[in-house]
Design a binder for these strands. Structure first.
Lengths: 217, 217
DNA sequence: CAGTAGACTAAACACGTGATCAGTCAACCG
DNA sequence: CGGTTGACTGATCACGTGTTTAGTCTACTG
């Protein structure tokens, strides 16, 4: 008897290993609901395999979690590595859209990708990996801002640490409050359309301010 | 024999009912780790009662959760109610600090209060209560911004929906990314000291912008 | 002083969880 | 061909969970 189910390449459309299929299913579920709220049985069902196979491949649920973490971190670094030069170029050419992390993500990931949601979880839990990621992005923002000041493009600040954090978290707010923003403005801010509206307003405020200065000037 | 443990008023310093003690313990634990990650036994231990008493008073864990939700929502509304006039007054008198939700919270809640963390969780989960809260705050922000434009204090925007959302989520970012911000700038942004630094930078950017406008003007 | 109501607890129950185990099957190697 | 390796599964385990039950003790009521 010829068993289709045991041909690992036939488990899922796309010729993926069973391992990869399980990892992808876990990534998607972890991103949406968090690892603690997802059961091994659920992952197995979604991947079309038995629960025991999940632990056969990854040792334990925590092992799977670690592997998914590493996979996601790798994907994020790939995005981040391709960004700063591109972002800088856009900024210096005075392009219409301001360089931003959220924007880079919207461009770098396919529309249905679970990675933005995964990133969100990483930043919001007390995960050390999330803290490390935030730290690297903060340092990059800080450096970029210093560079822009030196170039005369950005005005200097008395408290550059806070200003860099201000810009970074305003940007990340798009990712972490995505759903709330979507219902408020009637458009997903991580799609190109929503992103355009957002970038235009942010760009204006960052360039000109939003209030008529009451006492200064 | 005289039993101290059964005198409800002696269970906890502060003359609280056992019910209130349990509710407070649950609020604190829910805020820190989320309701799903907290066990009934844990709440009971922290409150100094038996696990069965928790369910005796609240029917079920979900019942307790609902009661804690209602309690927190009530506290938030109280803060929100006292804010807009005060905020408006500060704004119109040209006070040093810009009116903001995060600021109002830092002023309105004692330093160790679990309510900011609870609010954070409410906004970040897909909880309908959180969506409702965000919706009300968004409407208030939108109205305030319109009013300021009408008064000539704020510059009009082509996309006021997005601009209001932009201001609101920048503000809420202080609450949802509090920990990451704290390690980045070296100060908890929800304490008066950290809040001052943050408000100063935000105020400057919102008033004057941060970049030298490249093409406009 | 009975007697009832309610705060409170110890013990146990039903169930879903992550994990283990023994075993089947296909592929590969000598 | 015989034998070993490894992907894969069904059955089962130990355990923590929310909840229930039976019962104790105190305070109040007539």
């Amino acid at each position: 008897m010829f068993s289709l189910l045991n041909m690992s390449s036939a488990i899922d459309p796309g010729d993926l290993t069973a391992r990869a299929t399980i990892r992808n299913a876990a990534l998607r579920l972890f991103a949406e609901r968090g690892p603690d709220a997802v059961t091994v049985r659920e992952i197995a069902t979604q991947a079309g395999v038995s629960p025991a196979l999940v632990l056969h491949h990854f040792g334990s649920k925590d092992g799977l979690r670690a592997e998914v973490d590493a996979f996601a971190a790798h994907a994020f670094d790939a995005i981040l590595e391709a960004m700063p030069t591109e972002e800088l170029a856009e900024l210096l050419t005075g392009g219409s859209t301001r360089g931003s992390l959220a924007e880079a993500f919207a461009r770098g990931f396919p529309p249905g990708s679970p990675l933005p949601a995964y990133l969100r979880r990483l930043l919001l839990t007390n995960d050390p990996a999330g803290a490390a990621l935030f730290g690297r992005w903060y340092a990059a923002t800080r450096r970029l801002l210093d560079m822009l000041v030196e170039m005369g493009v950005a005005r200097p600040s008395e408290d550059p640490d806070v200003r860099a954090a201000f810009f970074l978290v305003n940007d990340l707010a798009l990712i972490v409050l995505r759903n709330q923003i979507a219902v408020a403005i009637g458009a997903d801010p991580l799609t190109p359309a929503g992103m355009d509206r957002w970038a235009r307003e942010a760009g204006i405020v960052y360039a000109e301010g939003a209030f008529r200065a009451p006492q200064k000037e």
